[in-house]
């Protein structure tokens, strides 16, 4: 007796977004990244289109970070003082695109400046041809100051600029609009908040295909289930035709996974946690992988070994399978 394969009919689709511009398009990137376009829940190829795989951004900083796990500094320590060299190494380690996060201060504790931020961005753009995202340190006034300068200096590159938050999105949105960049819209693990901020940004005149949704997440063990379910709900809403939730989703499993004790600390932890490095990599891989299952289009990660493993996951998931 033949069994009817249950397929869901969706009226909506995820919006495509293009990050990075090649010389023909007014930028200097050697390639661009396209995400989104799905017409089904993650990787259900038998039901709809999954035209683009999720991509992995490797996060780099404008200077040596003070608080990263020693396991990360083992890998990046030799290039961490030079954003150009770091960008190059990240590209060699399999990044599809890069995220440059700007620091709050310089190594001596003086506030970061627009000049330094622009210099770092220029170095990165020269050293690597990958599409680039640039996020401020997360303090409204400084974010605006730094990101406006970066946005002007990299006009036409189709960067993703962040972080747009409910309290602070106008300046960044305005400069991204003026300079042909995209923005990342970040809200705290809530479907309605995520939607609301997209509406506010769009109301300023930003086209929807230049707004990425960062619904934020906790790491594995630290609230990932909230991020996971908010992403599933946003994606379901998108497929049901809710236009304000149809942007591609960007998420930061690297940052989250690498700040928890399981990854940061090697000593004085329970024996049952096992080998430090193995555990830390698994923590980042698990956080990123679970979020890809729930709909992430861009995952931002930190360790090259995790990146390689998550690439393998994505490659497998992009194989279309017809159920029988």
């Amino acid at each position: 007796m033949p069994i009817e394969i249950p397929k869901q009919k969706w009226s909506g689709a995820v919006r495509e977004a293009v990050i990075g511009a090649t010389p023909e398009e007014g930028g200097t990137r050697k390639k661009k990244v396209i995400v989104g376009g799905q017409t089904t829940m993650p990787f259900l190829h038998f039901e709809g289109e999954v035209p683009h795989p999720p991509v992995i951004a490797i996060e780099i900083k404008d200077r040596k970070p003070d608080d990263w796990s020693p396991l990360l500094m083992e890998v990046w320590g030799d290039v961490a003082d030079d954003p150009g060299a770091w960008a190059k190494k990240a590209e060699e380690n399999g990044a599809d695109l890069l995220l440059l996060t700007l620091s709050l201060t310089d190594a001596d504790g003086n506030p970061n400046t627009p000049e330094r931020a622009v210099e770092a961005v220029k170095k990165v753009l020269e050293a690597s041809g990958l599409p680039l995202m640039v996020f401020g340190p997360g303090q409204a006034d400084l974010d605006n100051e730094l990101i406006v300068a970066v946005s002007d200096a990299a006009k036409g590159e189709r960067l993703v600029l962040g972080i747009c938050e409910e309290q602070n999105y106008r300046t960044i949105t305005a400069t991204a609009m003026a300079n042909d960049h995209l923005v990342s819209s970040r809200t705290a693990m809530d479907v309605n908040l995520a939607k609301q901020l997209v509406i506010l940004i769009h109301d300023m005149g930003m086209p929807l295909d230049r707004i990425l949704i960062d619904p934020t997440t906790g790491a594995l063990g630290y609230g990932i289930e909230y991020g996971y379910s908010v992403m599933e709900r946003l994606r379901l809403a998108a497929l049901q035709g809710d236009t304000m939730t149809q942007g591609p989703m960007l998420i930061t499993p690297g940052e989250e996974a690498w700040r928890v004790k399981e990854s940061k600390v090697g000593e004085g932890v329970p024996e049952a946690w096992g080998d430090w490095k193995e555990r830390a990599i698994n923590w980042e891989v698990t956080t990123a992988t679970a979020l890809i299952y729930s709909g992430a289009d861009i995952v931002i990660m930190r360790h090259p070994e995790s990146v390689a493993r998550v690439h393998a996951v994505i490659q497998d998931l992009m194989t279309a399978v017809e159920p029988a």
């Binding site: 594995l220 289930e225 996971y228 399981e262 096992g274 555990r279």
Partner: peptide
């Protein structure tokens, strides 16, 4: 099996199966 594999997998299971 290693503790460093089992621990994150077991935590993932807890998280996914937490009553939302």
């Amino acid at each position: 099996f290693t503790p460093a594999r089992a621990y994150p997998l077991l935590v993932l299971r807890e998280n996914i199966y937490t009553d939302p």
